[in-house]
Amino acid sequence: MKQFLGKRAVASAVSLLGLVVLVFFLSRLTGDPTDLYLPVDASVESREQFRELHGLNDPLVMQFVNYLGDLVRFDFGESIRRNEPAIDAVLRGFSWTLTLAVITMGLVTVCAITFGALAAFNVGGRFDRFATFVSLIGASAPDFWIAIVAIVLFSVNLGWLPTSGTGTVWHWVLPVAVLFIRPFGLILQVVRGSMISALQSAYVKTARAKGVGNRPIIFVHALRNAMLPVITVIGDQAAALLNGAVVVETIFGFPGVGKLMIDSILQRDFTVILAAIMVTAFAIFLMNILIDIAYAILDPRIRY
């Protein structure tokens, strides 16, 4: 297990470095931040001064080497826009996104597994057809459209919920609900399919022959076996949320890392872009490890 974790850590560090190289140079292609931050009629001297201050005068490779040197000391640089360490801004945004992702994925997991398992137990039954119909719509509905319609309906017309921002519990309802729909639909489908084959398996027949009741057969015997492919999809969907649900966060004015990234790109705030990408990449690395551990816990045949 230790060896496995070590190998994974090294592999992830390598891809993280590649990512840093890519993003560092790509973001420079968006243009010179000086044009954005100083007035159009700023003097050549003050432009020079701004460049000097933010180290933009050095050759690109030199800037990169300096950046890496700072990184080793966990210094992610200053945000041009915000006048604070880039990492502070990113961690603040990330903590919002993480909360949103954990709440949403928690709800999705519980609901999708329960409904998917019940649908699989009586294939073709009324509940199964209903669940399949709902999940198919959920999996295919575009979330930006749902977000806008939800705002129009619940905030503007009915006036039940705030349109955007944070502050109260009510502010969370719409973002969580909108982000819930697609993963719920997808995961329910996977649970259902995986459960159908698990329920047809020979060990379920054995359980029936032992006199085990329907509920333990579904939730004890079949579900744990059916969870392996499900966990993969859950991980996939959770990664998408951790990356920042850019569109949904923007629509709801939610101060998460996705919105921060978009803003920083528009503002040519290079250090923030890089820090945000590294933080989310690290989070996804951790989550993949968790998924591998979950695999080993669920299935004793898997050992690293």
């Binding site: 398996s201 020979a202 060990y203 027949k205 054995t206 359980a207 022959a209 032992k210 006199g211 015997h221 744990r224 076996n225 669920l298 299935d299 004793p300 045949r301």
Partner: peptide
């Protein structure tokens, strides 16, 4: 309890997890 059964392929008839 009163009627029990065993099967041909015991590996697939035992729950692996």
């Amino acid at each position: 309890k009163r009627i029990a059964m065993i099967f041909q392929d015991p590996l697939s008839h035992l729950n692996p997890v």
